[in-house]
Design a protein around this nucleic acid. Structure first.
Length: 929
RNA sequence: GCUCGAGUGGUGGAAUUGGUAGACACGCAGGACUUAAAAUCCUGUGGUCAGAAAUGGCUGUACGGGUUCGAUUCCCGUCUCGAGCACCA
């Protein structure tokens, strides 16, 4: 019987779906395992072969864990809100709901063909009201809580209010956007609007004025991780900084916990490092610099001076501070601008404000700035130093003001050189005539009481001095900013917020979900209001509702919790389900979410953990980043001005332009010239200059995309080779974590392997025939080598080598003409995570009733794989070395014993005394004489 | 500029924790079967030198050093590529 993969695959896909084979329930009698893929955004282009890579890897692991007896939760859903559907809607007028549904249908068809073991009964879609109800619910909880630094967790705002009523905020230690201190009477006499404003400074979800990334082309603000190099990640449009009032999430309050939580996670080092950098913890010192404005624009505290606070990690260099710098957006600018400098400062500020983020970045090397007219006093030297304003100082980090040490900071150095400010080195022996000395290394000099100390000693000593003088304290700063949470777009979750007399007020929970309304157009209104302003009656009890919607990461932040209990309409997840499934044991997805989704999700989870809704402080225990699969494009070379095409190795003799050619008409880099002529009328009479009778194409590795004609559709692979071959081949291509180009060339190898395996079960006439005989020692050795290898490789996520192990085993079994049930049945189980359809078919042909998915994983017996002991002497350098190959299964302890025994009984080898015995943990022993 | 990761045949990639480098597969070459092709099967395949041949020698994991009886693996330096961050004081 031939291996008819199309028939087999269809048959078992229907079987799994009909029998709900992969539906799971909480089952306290069995251990759980939760395997999650990053759910896809259903784009219009459908899946290409790169998309399923991670899904296949996680599916293999799910199926493996099922064989091991775990109750495996392996769900799938769609991240369905987002910009592309909305952009398409603006162009075509088609409702994003509709295009999204169409795309989802297409995705589902494609996914189904690959034979995943998803529990589709748990599917979620972020755009579904029954789903986004819980996104809105979490937002309301964040609105209703603040972060208490003393208890180290989120607490209800009501608690804060009762403290304010009794004693004001002087003793409150909470994450807060304002430093203003007030007492109880001030609070009690405040108006509702004033109270609301004060509380906004504390809420975890809050409305706040901030400098945001504004993308005019998309008509919306964007979070920091949605902007790269000053350009929007989606669409690639320019982004500028703009002050706007926006909803934000106080992620910064969780910075320390987000950082510390990383230690216990089984994530790749590079990913953890990325998150650490993004969180950007730095410990330093806050120092007060007395600052005077000799001629203030407005008469105020000018003559008494201001206490200007700066943040530094190099308190040791205070003796080298020769000037101060303010960010252009700093609130100090207006206070410290003197009359004489007012015009210059104003024009500089204006110039800075106009620049886009991209322009500011492009000009990182050009130094700009202006003198404010004011002076500070260096607290250590007592010297008067000028205060400057420059855009190289960021308003959002630290206090928006710095002390400049040009001798030991390259940015300060460049500034000092440009504006001719003094440069005083404070570390012995460094040459600052050409560049600054930035290293934290050396002995202090020119530094009074710090002289003679090393930099490492001087930093705490300087901090000590500053504290004794009462002009500073130890301080930790974070780079991570609060997440900007509103988008001026249509296709997202509406905020459950209305404005009662201008005060942002939460909707009662009973009103959730607040449904996304219909609008006539998906564009902003004439007056620049977001599209939701077009909706009729977008009000609650007569008050206007918020018109922004939530960003993409809102819906993806807690979806892993929803899968645990997807149909619960009373809770996000029931306590029972949460306590059983807890968190994701294995999460597979791309590295592009390192500083977005993976931070927000951890934050969201920690918040819900504080409130007692979830049992685990971290959502994803182990994380594997699958690499990207790139396309392999082919080129033909057209001789300029002709319709002649020259083969790759001859192209240098002509003036040519490379043209992308559809990879479907190229085989092994050889062009099908007839098919090429038929491609378009333009090429109908194309001529070819061949080499060895063939047209050889050039190639390049590029992103897989329609415009490069290099897209490989998994459906086509399933048609010609079958889903099992596709799965195996994607794994065989290389380590899952690695990016690599797709090349269909090698697929014949795995295809051959599967057919070879299939043949083991049939006799010469093609009749299914397995023998009930006892397997030979050789057959058992092959089998158990395979079991050991496969088990080890799956655990290590090294699927490419396990596919190789299968090929070796099947070659060996084939050579031995092994058709014994006792061996083949176990191989079927082992292979079933990789090639589920084929194995399900064989499993049933072997007479089993239940799906192979629940067969027990074969037991590994190392003693059956023992190699014969070999012992051979090797001589070198006049010494003699004996290498003893001991069985692989032998424990290190046994090896040691064996060797000691050897040394005691055999003191001499080849007439030489044994000098040294080197035991390499494992099995190889060197005896040096 | 800073941080992290990688560099192995014509190609994708193996190689336990330092222990026979190149498993497995593709490609290529030769052969068998066939009228022929496809499919299938067999043999060879890092480089180089010697040999009629079996075989053997040398060399070889980006480059230069080091540690070690022994290095693709560990350490130092250089180069190249990839990813991330980018005036974070």
């Amino acid at each position: 019987m031939e291996y008819d993969f199309l028939k087999i695959e269809r048959k078992w896909q229907e079987y799994w779906s009909k029998n709900k084979t992969f539906k799971v329930e909480t089952d306290k009698s069995r251990p759980k395992y939760y395997v999650l893929d990053m759910f896809p955004y259903p784009s219009g282009a459908g899946l290409h072969v790169g998309h399923p890579l991670g899904y296949i890897a996680s599916d293999i692991y799910s199926r493996y864990m099922r064989l091991r007896g775990y109750n495996v939760l392996h769900p799938m859903g769609y991240d369905a809100f987002g910009l592309p559907a909305e952009q398409y809607a603006i162009q075509t007028g088609q409702h994003p709901q509709k295009t999204t549904e169409n795309n989802i249908r297409r995705y589902r068809e494609q996914l189904d063909r690959i034979g995943f073991s998803f529990d589709w009964s748990r599917e979620v879609r972020t755009c579904d009201p029954s789903y986004y109800k819980w996104t809105q619910w979490a937002f309301l909880k964040m609105f209703g809580h603040y972060y208490d630094n003393n208890s180290g967790k989120a607490e209800p705002v009501e608690k804060l209010v009762s403290i304010f009523e009794k004693e004001g905020n002087a003793n409150v230690n909470a994450a807060c956007s304002s430093e203003r201190i007030f007492d109880a009477s001030e609070w009690n006499s405040a108006t509702e609007a004033e109270k609301s404003d004060i509380l906004m400074n504390y809420r975890i979800a809050y409305l706040g004025e901030t400098s945001v990334n504004w993308c005019a082309k998309l008509g919306t603000v964007l979070a920091n991780d949605e902007v790269k190099e000053g350009i929007s990640v989606r669409g690639g449009f320019p982004v500028i900084q703009k002050k706007m009032k926006q909803w934000q999430l106080r992620v910064s309050a969780y910075a320390d916990r987000l950082l510390n939580g990383l230690d216990d996670l089984q994530w790749s080092d590079s990913l953890k490092e990325m998150q650490r950098n993004w969180i950007g913890k730095s410990t330093g010192t806050e120092v007060v610099f007395k600052t005077f404005n000799p001629d203030p624009v407005n008469f105020n505290a000018g003559d008494k001076g201001y206490d200007m606070i700066i943040f530094t990690t190099r308190a040791d260099t205070i003796f080298g501070v020769t000037f101060m710098v303010l960010a252009p957006e700093s609130e100090w600018v207006s206070k410290l601008t003197s009359k004489g400098q007012k015009d210059a400062v104003d024009s500089y500020i204006k110039q800075c404000a106009k620049k886009t983020e991209r322009e500011r970045m492009a000009e990182t090397r050009t130094v700009t700035g202006v003198f404010s007219g004011s002076y500070s006093i260096n607290p250590f030297t007592g010297k008067k130093i000028p205060v400057w304003i420059s855009e190289y100082v960021l308003s959002g980090y630290g206090t928006g003001a710095i002390m400049a040490v040009p001798a030991h900071d390259s940015r300060d150095y460049a500034f000092a050189r440009k504006f001719d400010l003094p440069i005083i080195p404070v570390i012995e022996g460094c040459d600052v005539s050409r560049e600054s000395f930035d290293a934290k290394d050396g002995i202090m000099c020119n530094s009074g009481f710090l002289n003679g100390k090393t930099v490492k000693e001087a930093i705490p000593a300087a901090l000590d001095a500053v504290e004794k003088m009462h002009i500073g304290k130890k301080k930790t700063n974070f780079r991570i900013r609060d997440a900007i949470f509103s988008r001026q777009r249509y296709w997202g979750e509406p905020f459950p917020i209305y404005y009662k007399d201008g005060i942002a007020t939460p909707l009662p929970e009973s009103e959730l979900p607040l449904m996304l309304p219909d609008v006539d157009k998906f564009l902003p209104t004439e007056d620049g209001e977001p599209p939701l302003a077009r909706a009729k009656n977008w009000t609650y009890k007569g008050y206007p509702l918020e018109t922004s919607t939530m960003p993409g990461f809102a819906g993806s932040s807690a979806y892993y919790l929803r899968y645990m209990d997807p149909h619960n309409d009373r809770e996000l997840v029931s306590r029972e389900a949460d306590e059983y499934w807890r968190n994701v044991d294995l999460y597979v997805g791309g590295t592009e979410h390192a500083t977005g989704h993976l931070i927000y999700s951890r934050f969201w989870n920690k918040f819900l953990y504080d409130l007692g809704y979830v049992a685990e402080p971290e959502p994803f225990r182990k994380l594997v980043n699958q690499g990207m699969i790139q396309g392999r494009s082919n080129f033909v070379y057209r001789i300029i001005g002709t319709n002649k095409f020259v083969s790759y190795n001859l192209k240098d003799k002509y003036e040519t332009t490379p043209i992308h050619v559809n990879i479907n008409i190229v085989d092994n880099d050889k062009l099908d010239t007839e098919a090429f002529r038929k491609l378009s009328p333009e090429y109908a009479d194309a001529e070819f200059i061949l080499e060895d009778g063939e047209y050889v194409c050039g190639y390049a590795v590029e992103k897989m995309s329609k415009s490069m004609f290099n897209v490989v559709n998994p459906d086509n692979i399933c048609d010609t080779y079958g889903a099992d071959t596709l799965r195996l081949y994607e794994m065989f291509l290389g380590p899952v974590e690695q990016s690599k180009p797709w090349d269909t060339k090698g697929i014949d190898g795995v295809s051959r392997f599967l057919r070879k395996f299939w043949k083991l079960f049939f006799d010469d006439k093609g009749v299914f025939l397995v023998s009930e005989e006892k397997p030979s020692a050789g057959e058992l050795k092959t089998l158990h080598k395979l079991i050991g290898k496969v088990e080890e490789d799956i655990e290590a996520f090294s699927y490419n080598t396990s596919v190789s192990a299968f090929m070796i085993a099947v070659n060996e079994l084939s050579d031995m003409k092994c058709n014994k049930r006792a061996v083949l049945e176990k191989v079927v189980v082992l292979l079933s995570p990789f090639a589920p359809h084929l194995c399900e078919e064989l499993w049933h042909l072997l007479g089993n009733e239940r799906s192979v998915s629940f067969a027990p994983f074969p037991c590994y017996d190392a003693s059956l794989t023992v190699e014969d002991e070999v012992e051979y002497p090797v001589s070198f350098n006049g010494k003699t070395r004996f290498k003893i190959n001991l069985p692989r299964s032998m424990s290190q302890e046994d090896v040691r014993k064996e060797v000691i025994e050897y040394k005691d009984t055999v003191r001499y080898l080849n007439g030489r005394q044994i000098r040294k015995i080197i035991v390499v943990p494992g099995r190889i022993v060197n005896v040096v004489c």
